[in-house]
Design a binder for these strands. Structure first.
Length: 819
RNA sequence: GCGGGUGUGGCGGAAUUGGCAGACGCGCUAGAUUUAGGUUCUAGUGGGCGACCGUGGGGGUUCAAGUCCCUCCACCCGCACCA
């Protein structure tokens, strides 16, 4: 009987499907004696075809799920589709196929492909975010956020992707380009919907410290994105200013350097600028400058370090020393951070230093390095480190960190400043001018104004009679039927909000819906969710480090605060798997180095694909696809197949014989393998787990070749190999289990006593260099081992009569002789 | 610029706590089986004739360093005028 993956894989997949083999029958976890384990892979976007990245992601999750199941856990392992989004809409425009149809076709095809990999999902729990019974609750969450002040509409200067014809969240702009399509992102002044994620900035930052099971890299990326900084706001009077131009407030993290402040800078797009420059001699020059900056794209503006500026014609007064300093417009000040106004201290800030040099502004030292007296004219760059205050009034001579606090207190006492904490994190812009998304559950009533719908009016169904323009206004505007609504407050005619929600909104809570996917009365039941959450192991690509993973954390905290669940963090452990490369670069159509999973499955079977992908590299590292190494894994599975079936026929012959030495060797290999594979899977070292199984298979072959024929032992070996293989290559494992009549029901254990051998081999070093290996009885005293080591001929020869200064015996490891 | 990661045979990688560097696999070489190719099996495979030398380079700690410390280099990823 030959190994035929195509036949057995289909057989087992059908079996699993027909018996709902991986269905989690409990409504709640923890009701049974078993412990729950929630393993989750990031759900897929229904592009139509699985790629190797999916195969890797989902195989990792499946190994964990199958292993935990065999260990007796109640494993929650669901899959679904992140089904709203632009590609469906673009495909609709291109192929004249409704997005819904395109998406649904792709979803069912991808579910089939996943089943073809033998992934053990609880299919009954699948959720698709584009279905009304899901997005009803996405909309409901919006209403909850709205009612609690966490969703609001405001006019603002937002990111605009011209190709996607929609606005984008800050997180979706990567170095000035659209995260999706790579187009250069522009700015537009629009009224848009936001979620108040900034309310959670501090908690999102603080709780990162508790996420010990997350990669350091991801935690740091989030911390940087949140970008907390401590400082002060200080108000400067404007010389000759009154009314709107009475004063300006700056944000600074270094108020201790304020005696070195020689000018002030305001962002050119700051709304007060027009008023400020009006009627000054500089008015025309400033207007020209503002226009110039306006016409620069985001990329042009940020890609240059060149600092450009112009004097406004105005002066401001430093409240600490009453000095008048000039007020400049400059490209290097950002409107949307702090107050949009900055006090410039060239001596202690590199940007200010460069600007001051260029425009010949004074440089004044206010912090000296400890024990030094630097002259400002000698500076070749700014001095940003700590030191002692210099020429700074009553604070002169004080260590700057101490002065910093005291100077803020002084500002507070004199009513011109206060302590201030700032974050880089902005509120999350969630409206999109696109069709294929969850409609925002808001209507505009001529009488009542902006009205948020109540739960009984949900879902707001996405209409199908819509024109796709791709022109930047929401396609929903073209559906009169949709746009026309009744105001829930007064019952009068009202208009619907035409924008839809960012798909990241839909994916920020799907892991909660999996816990209670069929609930038609609620988004999810609190008790049920509490019994499963948090996700014990989340697995996905690192590209979501600050998008999905930050939003999902925000949703979890907000929903917890509203009383809908207990967990304040969604994902206890996170594994970010590496990319699948071919010839050193990412698989992509344009490079032409794509290896399709289908092709591999057809040629070698899903088990081989899974084995290769788990064997070729540790999960978090990039993995280079290698066709001949894939064949190697196929060879290995054939080798396992032959070994087990051959053993089986020997066992059935019943001619058993014992050979203590051979039997001991095999028994030792067997037990150490079981221990190693268990340990390795626990620590996600799947590659070494597989290599250990390979070693055992090699030993098992040698055993037979040398005449080993202990039937009971061979039976154990066959059974345990099959169980250990199950998480990685479930089809062949179950088929072999059936052949040898040993159903796989639980993980296997090892016999610790079998790991203790009568004799052990001890390496002997001289000065740390290996010279010989000696064999001593297990458990020998240091003295015995030492004597044996010194007896060795090789050691004697290497010592060549030299004096032995010291002998170090490390039990269970080695002997080192120091000469 | 700031932050993080990586660097080990021809290749992917192993060495979990400072203790035999190169497990396991690919590739390669030779042989057996075979009409032949493929499959399968066996042996070998870091370098050097050797003493020895070898984990990106240099230095250090230690009886012992891929692993710890200092320093330099290369590549990759993230952020990037955040005051």
């Amino acid at each position: 009987m030959l190994y035929n993956p195509q036949v057995i894989e289909r057989k087992w997949q059908n079996k699993w499907k027909e018996s709902d083999a991986f269905k989690l029958t409990n409504d709640k976890a923890k009701q049974s004696d078993a412990k729950k384990y929630y393993v989750l892979e990031m759900f897929f976007y229904p592009s139509g075809k699985l790629h190797m990245g999916h195969v890797r992601n989902y195989t990792i999750g499946d190994v964990v799920a199958r292993y935990k199941r065999l260990k007796g856990f109640d494993v929650l392992h669901p899959m679904g589709a992140d089904a709203f989004g632009l590609p469906a809409e673009n495909a609709a425009i291109k192929n004249k196929m409704p997005p819904k149809k395109w998406t649904e076709q792709n979803i069912s095809s991808m579910y089939e492909q996943l089943a073809g990999l033998g992934i053990s999902y609880d299919w009954e729990r699948s959720v698709e975010t584009c279905k009304p019974d899901y997005y009803k609750w996405t909309q409901w969450i919006f209403t909850q956020l709205y009612k609690n002040g966490l969703a609001y509409k405001k006019k603002s200067y937002v990111n605009w992707c011209p190709d996607c014809a929609t606005v984008l969240a800050n997180e979706q702009v990567v170095s000035g380009k659209c995260e999706r399509c790579g187009s250069e992102v522009g700015k537009k002044d629009l009224e848009q919907w936001f979620f108040k994620i900034t309310n959670y900035a501090q908690e999102l930052l603080d709780d990162l410290d508790n996420l010990k099971g997350w990669p350091e890299k991801v935690r740091l990326m989030q911390a940087n994105w949140i970008g907390r900084s401590e400082g002060a706001e200080i108000t400067f009077d404007i010389a000759g200013g009154e009314g709107d131009t009475k004063n300006l407030t700056v944000y600074t993290t270094r108020p201790d350097t304020i005696f070195g402040c020689t000018y002030m800078v305001i962002a050119p797009e700051h709304p007060i600028v027009a008023e400020l420059i009006k009627g000054t001699q500089q008015e025309d020059e400033c207007k020209n400058f503002i226009n110039k900056i306006k016409f620069m794209s985001e990329i042009e503006r940020t890609s240059t370090d060149e600092k450009l500026g112009v004097w406004t014609g105005r002066y401001v007064i430093n409240p600490y020393n009453n000095e008048e300093i000039p007020l400049y417009l400059a490209n290097y000040v950002l409107m949307d951070y702090g107050t949009g106004v900055v006090m410039a201290v060239p001596a202690h800030d590199q940007r200010d230093f460069e600007f001051a040099k260029k425009y010949n502004l004074p440089i004044k030292i206010s912090v000296q390095p400890k024990g030094e007296q630097v002259k400002s004219g000698d500076l070749t760059e700014s001095f940003a480190a700590d030191g002692v205050l210099f020429e700074s009034g009553q604070w002169s001579g004080m260590p700057n960190r101490e002065a910093l606090t005291k100077m803020i207190d002084y500002a507070q006492e004199n009513n011109f400043g206060k302590k201030k904490i700032n974050f880089k994190l902005r509120d999350w812009l969630i409206s999109r001018q696109r069709y294929w998304g969850a409609p925002i559950p808001i209507v505009y009533c001529p009488k009542c104004g902006e009205v948020c719908l109540d739960e009984q009016d949900l879902p707001v169904i996405l209409p199908e009679n819509v024109e796709f323009t791709g022109k930047g206004t929401s396609p929903l505007l073209t559906s009169e039927e949709f746009m026309h609504a009744k105001c829930p407050k007064c019952g009068g005619d009202a208009k619907r909000e035409a924008d839809t929600m960012d798909t990241f909104v839909c994916s920020s809570w799907y892991f909660l819906r999996y816990c209670d996917p069929k609930n038609s009365a609620k988004a999810f039941d609190r008790d049920v969710v509490d019994s499963f959450m948090p996700v014990d192991q989340y697995i996905g690509g690192v590209e979501h480090a600050v998008l999905h993973l930050l939003y999902a954390r925000f949703f979890t905290k907000a929903l917890a605060d509203l009383g809908y669940l207990s967990a304040r963090e969604p994902f206890a452990n996170l594994l970010t798997q590496g990319m699948v490369l071919k010839d050193g670069s990412k698989m992509s159509k344009s490079v032409g180095n794509v290896v399709s999973p289908e092709e591999i499955i057809q040629k070698y079977g899903a088990d081989t694909a899974r084995m290769f992908i788990m064997f070729a590299a540790p999960p978090e590292r990039d993995l280079d696809w290698n066709d001949s190494a894939v064949e190697g894994l196929y060879r290995f599975l054939n080798r396992v197949w032959r070994l087990v079936t051959d053993y089986d026929s020997v066992i059935k012959d019943g001619n058993s014989s014992e050979n203590k030495k051979l039997d001991d060797e095999l028994n030792f290999a067997l037990n150490s393998c079981v221990k190693k594979v268990s340990d390795d899977i626990e620590r996600f070292a799947f590659n070494t787990a597989i290599s250990s199984i390979m070693e055992l298979v090699n030993v098992a072959y040698t055993y037979r070749a040398n005449g080993g024929a202990n039937v009971a032992l061979m039976q154990q070996v066959a059974q345990k190999i099959v169980v250990m293989l199950e998480p990685f290559a479930p089809h062949i494992a179950n088929e072999l289990a059936e052949i040898i009549g040993f159903p796989i029901t639980e993980w296997i254990t090892y016999d610790a006593s079998a790991l203790v051998q009568a004799n052990i081999e001890v390496p002997v070093q001289i000065n740390g260099k290996l010279k010989d290996k000696i064999v001593v009885p297990t458990g020998s005293d240091d003295d015995v081992i030492k004597a044996a080591a010194l007896e060795s001929d090789k050691v004697k020869a290497a010592l060549d009569g030299a004096e032995v200064r010291k002998v170090i015996v490390v039990q269970g490891k080695l002997v080192n002789i120091v000469k």
